[in-house]
Design a binder for these strands. Sequence first.
DNA 1: GGGCGAAGAGAAATCGGTTACTTGAAATTA
DNA 2: TAATTTCAAGTAACCGATTTCTCTTCGCCC
Lengths: 353, 353
Amino acid sequence: MADHGPARRATIRDVAASAEVSVATASRVLSGSDYPVSNRMRAKVMRAVAELDYVANAHARALSGSRPKVIAMVSAAMHSSFYSDIAQSVVEAAAEHDRLCMYASSRGHAETELEIVSLLREQSADAVILVGGVVPTAEYTARMTRIAESLASVGSRLVLCGRPGLDPSIPAYVVSYDNADGAYAMISHLASRGHRRVLHLAGDETNTTAMDRVVGYRRAVADCGLDADPSLLEYGRFSRESGYQRTRARLEAGRRDFTAIFAADDLVASGAIRALGEAGLRVPADISVAGYNDSDPSLDVTPPLTTVHIPADQMGRTAVRLALADNPSETVVTLGTHIVVRQSVAPPPGGPS
Amino acid sequence: MADHGPARRATIRDVAASAEVSVATASRVLSGSDYPVSNRMRAKVMRAVAELDYVANAHARALSGSRPKVIAMVSAAMHSSFYSDIAQSVVEAAAEHDRLCMYASSRGHAETELEIVSLLREQSADAVILVGGVVPTAEYTARMTRIAESLASVGSRLVLCGRPGLDPSIPAYVVSYDNADGAYAMISHLASRGHRRVLHLAGDETNTTAMDRVVGYRRAVADCGLDADPSLLEYGRFSRESGYQRTRARLEAGRRDFTAIFAADDLVASGAIRALGEAGLRVPADISVAGYNDSDPSLDVTPPLTTVHIPADQMGRTAVRLALADNPSETVVTLGTHIVVRQSVAPPPGGPS
DNA sequence: GGGCGAAGAGAAATCGGTTACTTGAAATTA
DNA sequence: TAATTTCAAGTAACCGATTTCTCTTCGCCC
């Protein structure tokens, strides 16, 4: 008990010795093999394990046969409710499958993402899940293809979550939700309330997520017969600050030529609402505001935000399911979004125009 | 190129063979050893690596000598800006030290936490970081002590983040921030604005974080000469819903006997603000509200929340620093908090009473 | 009673790296 | 020129598990 030597970690050999059995027997007991072991031996091993406070060395285990039970995930950041909601569900789904999660942040840099994947490749995880929108250049496709193949070569699956898929010949799974449909539904909702001029504070013009939402916006504007004024579309960043600045700038320029704002996401909506408030405009009495993501700001903001719900929870679960399924029947899963109506949308001031 | 055999992963032996050198030489090149290797050999190895798209097997590497470069982290959840802010900074700090992060969620269950730590112990990570407040029973202390010792026995450090430390004889590091001081500062601030009756919507009565804030609240109430009415202290949960319900119930019961609310955290504050709004009370004109954490809701809420800033960023960095330092000079680090004044606090309606 | 299959234990090869030790050649010194 | 370092390459042991293969012992049946 009072052995203050160089505290070496107990190995399976120590267990075997202490239990007076062979290492093979100890291993069979500990690894849950279906090779028959007598109860007497089993008990002896268990007793030794408890006594020595033994835990297996996951690396040695990974080296000899069995694949390490790990799922890896990469996103641009964690402190953003969009990412952390997905991360949460990945972690939970992984736990249900008896897996641990490795996590790394690319900070939105393509090269960093590449480096991280290379690092993760060394871990031979079950799968690597890449989360979040991207800038879909040719260079991106090339990079992704390379990543997919290199992961496949070490036996890890690649799962793309919320970003576009690759050529079907490339070994990659895709879980996404329909950004265009969600935007379409929201614009339809605004139209049904009587809005004719809806300002879309879009995201980054090069980002797939932002562009898909723009596509849905445009389609709905056309289908619902709204004003298709191109000046009602403004690109910017996915942030509270950007929403605030763009709204404020527009208001200060005297261009109050819209009755509703469709924000690229809830953060942008939050910023827009603040700017409107400072300009003395009431939401939704004077201007309606709609967001996207159904994430953290949407309930804190006043009034509570009408927004598009993204099934973050299902996304994580689905990604993990695809990552671990023996024979995934589908390689691409698109989840549905739906709008959640709260209190930030009302008919325009003068009634339907 | 067109070898569609059972795609075995390239090993260092393959690299050595392809480069026509010994495995020792290949290893020395790849592991960045300081053993001298001629440039010619080095080049040959690098070429072979590129050709075979070789990556080392992290497990084999971990098995022979070098410790795997991994930091583990456990918290109750991820989708909560308090946890995800810390997670973010841990991940970033880890990346700077060339480490990957393993992440697991205990869902707030003590037994789950125990199981997870046992799983993590197998990974022989550099350190295991446990984040978040706890219920400090005797059973907890016993459990923690056991965890600390078992982690030490496999060479992993234990870092407690935002939760109480253990007996100094136990091998564990602690990074925390001063909850009592933050609460004290906020109450002083409210007092200086003229408030005499401050309602504290506290957290869970058994939780260390909640209780420390109550301690600071009580101390400040006494020191600043505020009304020490025990009915101005209400326990509950750390959630938007709880803040809403408690505020609403109190208002409906006609007990509007306070001029300011000090919420257990920003979520509670967000709920309280909503309830106040629904009751026709303006913030801060009629009632002032202060939060804690300086997390997501604080900027979305109207008006922006005066709150206590927790150095989430520093916490993660510090935890990682303690986890990896050769000879940490300190075993306990307490970080300072400070209040950030926004617009949710004003003097009480009638002016200082 | 002898033969045969099954049960259960152990010895040793293996996974893919790292590194202590060995070795041969070139450079330096006497 | 012979002796002694120094340098750089290779050989093989080792990390801690799993698993194949070998071997003994027992029960069962003809």
